[in-house]
Nucleic acid binder design. Structure first.
Lengths: 257, 257
DNA sequence: CCATCTTTGTGCACGCGTTCACAAAGACAT
DNA sequence: ATGTCTTTGTGAACGCGTGCACAAAGATGG
């Protein structure tokens, strides 16, 4: 999971647990694939396998949406696709703006997954005047000055931030002030937003670090035994107060070799 | 969170809860920022605010690593940076390969966050022969045929998949067969991997869909009242079989103003 | 109409994660 | 040395999420 929910502490929105909501898109994808293959019905077991989850969990998830299955048969694929789409709000059009058209922003603009499911890239915004007018993914980039007008004119409520970390908070505030209430943040920063605004974070670096942790643990299991001696902790405020790199001499260079 | 852990069901690796591990990179980032400003010590309250979490949670998280704080003072910034880096395995060099050099793959290759913390892009791999040799982010792209050799020669254990969905599973299998044991998957597919291999998934489309859900809910709260009539569920397999989109016409247009 | 078989929907128990609230520990002043 | 003040570290309670296991519901065949 490259994502982290911020704010809205597990608000069981309308009775649907947050964890379930997070899985609905997964089910939807699997169902769409089945639909394209014209499969009429699917059992919880099969669908669960396709989505990579436990079948009991899937059934419980669906039970929050209502009783849409038929015992002894399974779930009607088309019907379920519609129900989940509706529940997720994908039966309507969501205009989205992407702010920060660097490598990542451009990649996002070109990403087919956006347009495929109710999301429409309404505008691309960048602070660099040299970018203005230049088309990316067939859409001309507009300057940050136009941000408020773009949000307002297009009724945008979802914004994607792909700027450098330094600019993210400021962009965020302008987006929110202009009326955006949901933000997908790719910048490696913690955004602070007022209540009522949802922020989801995608952080590539964090994902890699989590993988590294597990990777190290795997490697450590084989080499078990050493690494048991922890470096001495700073004893007292005296040691802590001096601004040296490490309070003790044994701190190895933290930078990668 | 745009991320979802796959496999390894909450393995409390070496006593450190998975949830804590996922937050360590967040703390590390905040601490690094303090370090650059030469701040010597920080209290749990301050650091928690910077990382966007609860201070009690932060203290409990740190307690899993050991008692690195000083009561009445706080935590030594440099020391904590080192401890967390070590815990996450960032004191060593992690060669990484990126497979699939499209828009996203190129963006990842250029992403500074990779190199900054122990991760080194060892190779870029793409199936398109036309890409071979072409430098991206200063690194020449190599053809998929070389995959096994690259993994082996560089001792790569972490792979990033940025291919189209259709190619992901196959690439994944080749990576695993060649010795990769951690995978960061950007392709919108569920990867199936043998035990012992960690997969983390970053799915832009899913994140947006989750935001859309909450966005719809917010919009619905204002219009509260209608939408109470659930569409008739398919009665028996007969009704379910017809492939119509919506069984009812009452779906409200919740378009943002 | 009855029996059997399949598959859903869910009650229940368990475990992880979060949060509160406070005792213990240390800094610092007198 | 003693007292006060700050901040950590953690015991305990609570709530959410997960998975088991089974009863209920419907399909299907005779």
């Amino acid at each position: 999971m490259a994502t982290g929910r911020t704010h809205r502490p597990a608000t069981r929105s309308r009775g649907i647990p947050e964890a379930t909501v997070a899985r609905l898109p997964l089910y939807l994808r699997a169902l769409t694939a089945l639909s394209e293959r014209s499969v009429p019905t699917v059992s919880s077991e099969e669908l669960a396998a396709a989505a990579g989850v436990n079948s009991a969990k899937l059934r419980k998830d669906f039970s929050y949406l209502g009783s849409y299955g038929t015992r002894g048969v399974g779930y009607d694929v088309e019907y379920l696709v519609y129900q989940i789409s509706r529940e997720l709000g994908l039966t309507q059009d969501w205009p989205v703006v992407i702010v920060g058209i660097g490598n990542l922003g451009a990649a996002l603009a070109n990403y087919g997954g956006f347009a495929s499911r109710g999301f429409r890239v309404a505008a691309l915004i960048d602070a660099d005047p040299a970018m203005a007018g230049k088309p990316v993914a067939g859409i001309p980039v507009q300057h940050t000055d136009e941000l408020e007008k773009i949000i307002s004119d297009n009724g945008v409520s979802i914004g994607v931030i792909a700027t450098p970390a330094g600019a993210a908070q400021q962009v965020c505030e302008r987006l929110v002030a202009a009326g955006v209430t949901s933000i997908l943040n790719f910048a490696p920063t913690v955004l602070s937003v007022p209540d009522g605004v949802d922020v989801r974070k995608v952080d590539l670096s964090i994902e890699l670090q989590i993988l590294a942790f597990h990777e190290q643990r795997k490697a450590g299991e084989e080499t078990e035994g050493e690494a048991a001696v922890p470096p001495a902790a700073p004893t007292g405020a005296a040691a802590a107060a001096d601004g040296r790199k490490g309070p003790d001499g044994d701190v190895p260079a933290v930078m990668p070799a």
